[in-house]
């Protein structure tokens, strides 16, 4: 075999040429029978160029991807969601206590702290340690990808939900050891930053049941002070590079469908029938949240190898 199968073949393409959203839309339309309403025009799907305001009429769900170390699966999904043709506002977290990366043996992992270690510093450290090993097991390519996505791994439990993510990162604002090389680390340099300024997301996607449990438990413990609903999904992905790639694709597909459903629900409302608070017939026009289980079930049929879970939680 010419190359290690676990090895990440190449940096992912910046924008997958296939527009999965179109496929997703067609299924939705055919199933709902609401083909008269075009989901979104192509013009609306254009990703906003840097420094330009996003189209105010286009609606985008805000996503959050979560895995154990905020390195492999969540970052792959983060990249996919933010580099798709219809780029989504995305942030990502890890639920573990520490960032653990494979070391020379299973009992010698490379351990880093969340929130104040940058991907760049991990990369340079491992590069100095054993370039051959870490390139062969795909760690260096992974970190290379990650450092282009955002500054460093963040821990879910330390996330201050609702605190605006603007300006410099907290770790660097504190003036800790990272201040020298992290002084320029601003939230807006993260991929998928636009739309996440308020520090709130609509959808959380975890990549492992353990993480889903951790997220739910954390949200329950926080006492939901924000009164804001959030859909927490789990998509079970094995923690390796190949599965992460597949999982990233699946997550993007799920995101596209969810976003299509949300956009559709919003347009139906804004477009014509004032089906509002007082509408007697609730089932006539379902809002986005009710459509979620259907969307997920359809998605699950196509991705049976990635068992899904879902819960409506509160921030």
């Amino acid at each position: 075999m010419a190359s290690d199968p676990r090895r990440r073949p190449a940096p992912p393409p910046p924008a997958p040429p296939t527009p999965p959203a179109a496929v997703a839309d067609s299924t939705i339309m055919s199933l709902d029978g609401t083909t008269d309403t075009p989901p979104r025009t192509n013009g609306q799907q254009q990703p906003p160029k840097p420094g330009e305001e996003p189209d105010p009429t286009s609606y985008k769900l805000k996503f959050c991807t979560v895995c154990a170390s905020n390195n492999n699966r969540s970052m792959e999904a983060h990249l996919r969601l933010t580099t798709a043709t219809n780029a989504y506002p995305t942030i990502s977290f890890g639920t573990g206590s520490l960032v653990r990366l494979p070391g020379p043996s299973i009992s010698q992992p490379n351990v880093y702290t969340f929130n104040n270690t940058s991907y760049e510093s991990m990369y340079s450290e491992l590069l100095a340690k054993d370039e051959r090993l870490y390139r062969a097991n795909g760690i260096l390519p992974m970190l290379e990808r990650n450092k282009n996505v955002k500054w460093g791994p963040e821990r879910w439990q330390d996330w201050h939900i609702g605190v605006p993510r603007t300006g410099k990162r907290i770790a660097t604002q504190d003036g800790t050891a990272e201040s020298s090389n992290g002084a320029e680390a601003e939230y807006k340099n993260d991929k998928g930053y636009l739309g996440t300024e308020s520090g709130i997301v609509d959808i959380v996607i975890t990549c492992e049941e353990r993480c889903w449990d951790a997220v739910l438990d954390d949200l329950l413990s926080r006492g939901s002070p924000l009164n804001r609903p959030v859909h927490v999904f789990n998509v079970d992905i094995k923690d390796n590079h190949e599965e992460a790639l597949i999982g990233g694709k699946a997550i993007l597909e799920l995101a596209d469908e969810l976003n299509a459903a949300a956009g559709q629900a919003r347009q139906e409302e804004g477009g014509g029938g004032m089906n509002g608070f007082d509408a007697g017939d609730a089932s006539a026009r379902a809002g986005f949240d009710e459509r979620v289980p259907e969307v997920l079930a359809r998605w699950q049929e196509r991705w049976p190898q990635l068992p899904a879970l879902w819960s409506l939680c509160w921030f």
């Binding site: 009164n227 609903p229 026009r285 809002g287 986005f288």
Partner: peptide, 12 residues
């Protein structure tokens, strides 16, 4: 009687 999306907010 509200649709689900709204009902959950009412519940909250």
């Amino acid at each position: 009687t509200a649709p689900g999306s709204m009902r959950i907010c009412c519940i909250k």
